[in-house]
Design a protein around this nucleic acid. Structure first.
Lengths: 125, 125
DNA sequence: TGAACATATGAATAACTGTTCATATGTTCA
DNA sequence: TGAACATATGAACAGTTATTCATATGTTCA
């Protein structure tokens, strides 16, 4: 079809085998969304926020005080977490409390933590 | 101790409660490592590579052909994946085959995929 | 040994991202 | 209503990152 950037293979698998693998993969769009989803976890501030919210809802100023960061920075990050579907807000008067939005979140967090702690015990390189 | 950037709380939880929450959280270092770990998943190219390797090992040029990207770009990303402990290389003559390094990886990948597919079915905003 | 191939790597660049600052929005209560 | 508080938001800046290009390293085989 198109041989624009595609580099030819002399060794490695033949084109038919590669096509088979490609067809078994999730769609380009889903993989993109997946990377965007993980990207949200891939920031120190945001993972701290998620960690803080694992056991209790918290308001913005509590999170800011907990992480010793400015209110604005936390608010910006909460917006990203919210639009990614990781947290949801609940208004109570002036205060807005945030909590985790999905039970998947804790599972993924714990699995990742388990991985890095396991790796820390026996580092590879 | 230090009241440099810390913003005072009038509403929200008292300092003792916040300290309790803080003590229940993983260490700063572990959370940083965790965010760095997730950051590796948070790139479209790398998540594509991981996805391609879920069922079979592949050499660099196979991956490049599969993703229709340059060999150099793939190689750079494989280095990141390798030093994060996600993939490991196996040399066979000129060719170097990469495969997933840890059974956690597939679990985390699948859990994330499940999340975004579930979310896609019933989007929140 | 040297040609051909597979992969790795360093430098450069363009695009992206997180924090800060200033300020706006929204709520409560006297 | 207006002061005080809680949160959100836009612009700007600094730091980071992914890709490309050129080239180096390492392997095979004639």
């Amino acid at each position: 079809m198109d041989n624009l950037i595609i580099e030819e293979n002399f060794n490695g698998k033949d084109e038919k085998s590669l096509l088979k693998i490609k067809n078994a993969m999730p769609s380009i769009d889903d993989l993109y969304d997946l990377s965007e989803f993980f990207k949200v976890f891939g920031d120190s501030t945001r993972i701290n926020i998620v960690s803080a919210l694992l056991n209790s809802e918290l308001c913005v100023c509590d999170i800011a005080q907990l992480l010793e960061m400015g209110q604005s920075a936390i608010s910006h990050q909460l917006r990203i977490l919210k639009s990614a579907g990781l947290v949801k807000p609940r208004r109570d008067g002036k205060t807005i409390y945030y909590s985790l939005d999905d039970e998947h979140i804790k599972l993924i967090f714990d699995l990742g933590l388990e991985h890095i702690l396991h790796r820390k015990g026996a580092p590879n390189e």
